[in-house]
Design a binder for these strands. Structure first.
Lengths: 221, 221
DNA sequence: GACTATGTACTAACTGGTACGTCCACGTCA
DNA sequence: TGACGTGGACGTACCAGTTAGTACATAGTC
């Protein structure tokens, strides 16, 4: 690192131009994340992004090369964020059942709190995940939550609390699918079944429900 | 060079025109379903749809008014299709546990077999389901599967097999979320976890897994 | 002075939508 | 039965607005 941080700069004033590449990049990325999450890749407008930035369209192409380049950078950012949090889970101290419940609640809360991430993943799947496939950064991230699950399952098995033998990836999918769906499909589901999935009491009910379902599944008959 | 002078038309394409409004409409709808499911609302191109039709762009606007009008017509079509099949479920003759398993398998198989439907629902959620909200036809379909579930749950409760009290809509969500996710997120999930979710053995494993999970959940501790 | 960062003004291609004219099907009436 | 004419079905060519991307000039920084 070289000249980052410090300097106590007063960054405002379009009056005198300040070169601040790091924050220009961050600014563009933040706005782009919102725009892509809201409108999708083809629906997003580069001009619209530029307008809400404190810089210009020129800079988008200067730093990211193309609309697709920017989109990939956004994907790498949001995937990086979730990985960072995931690897910080500390579930080793809990007993297996409690650990699973906490994991479910973490997943539920994280996805609930990051609808932009959910939307971007949905959007990316519309494109058959071809941009994820293009990004070695994303393709190669070994997802820490899988190791966490594997460890809990092994422990639960050893202790005889979990009688079912299940692949950690499959269990992750069982947990994640419900949490993801609640957010990704909230509008269609909400409209058709006349429910507000954002309401706190429904959220709490669902949070408990998926926890119960997973734990009972693992305990077997 | 104003008016076209080629009155003496090359009568090869003009071989013989047949007026067949019904099939023209169907033709357009079928092509549009694929295009919208593949590229999304903003990614779809009216010209691309017209090209793959046996008619022209003019007819799209003649019958559907606008790109969005066509999109809504597509949504109504696919939602109509699934409702038709759902209302044909006959699970009253099975005992509650078997009925639930069959329902899960039906949902799993239907969503697996209709990725275009899944994709269109995902796309619609990107748009906050605003086109579903616009269509009274879709908005007003009270989904028959909910009644089916309610009936099974009541029966299971009465017989003492299901010890958990659960809202039919919530149970539908538990079932549907997993089946939906497997299809909607197959590309990102497949890329990141290096799995081919389309592979028959994985499909079979997941099909059994969600069935087990749901049944165990309902039976309670 | 050299290299990076930034702003302005522009364009070539695309894209939803339309003006306008033609053709087909079918009922009517001589 | 056959000419006719009317309204819906259809095709061609085109336009006007939009949009990703760029040429060029300049300012900041070490």
């Amino acid at each position: 690192m070289s000249m980052a941080e410090d300097k106590g700069r007063t960054d405002k004033a379009a009056a005198s131009r300040k070169n601040d590449p790091e924050s220009t990049r961050r600014d563009i990325l933040a706005v782009a994340t919102e725009e892509f999450a809201t409108h999708g890749l083809s629906g997003a407008r580069v001009d619209a992004i530029a307008e809400r930035t404190r810089t210009t369209k020129r800079m988008i192409y200067y730093y990211f090369g193309s609309k697709e380049g920017l989109y990939i950078a956004v994907l790498e950012k949001v995937y990086g964020d979730i990985r960072a949090v995931e690897s910080d889970l500390r579930l080793e101290d809990l007993d297996p059942e409690q650990a699973i419940r906490r994991l479910v609640e973490f997943t539920f809360d994280y996805e609930e709190a990051h609808p932009d991430f959910i939307r971007l993943v949905s959007i990316e799947n519309i494109h058959h995940a071809k941009y994820i496939a293009q990004s070695s950064a994303i393709r190669n991230l070994n997802v820490p939550v899988i190791d966490t699950i594997a460890e809990i399952l092994a422990r639960g098995h050893r202790q005889g609390v979990f009688r079912v033998d299940v692949d950690p990836v499959d269990l992750h999918m069982l947990i994640s699918s419900f949490c993801f769906f609640r957010v990704s499909n909230q509008h269609s589901f909400g409209t058709i079944f006349r429910q507000d999935l954002g309401a706190p009491e429904i959220r709490g009910k669902h949070r408990a429900m998926i926890g119960d379902a997973v734990v009972r599944y693992l305990k077997g008959d």
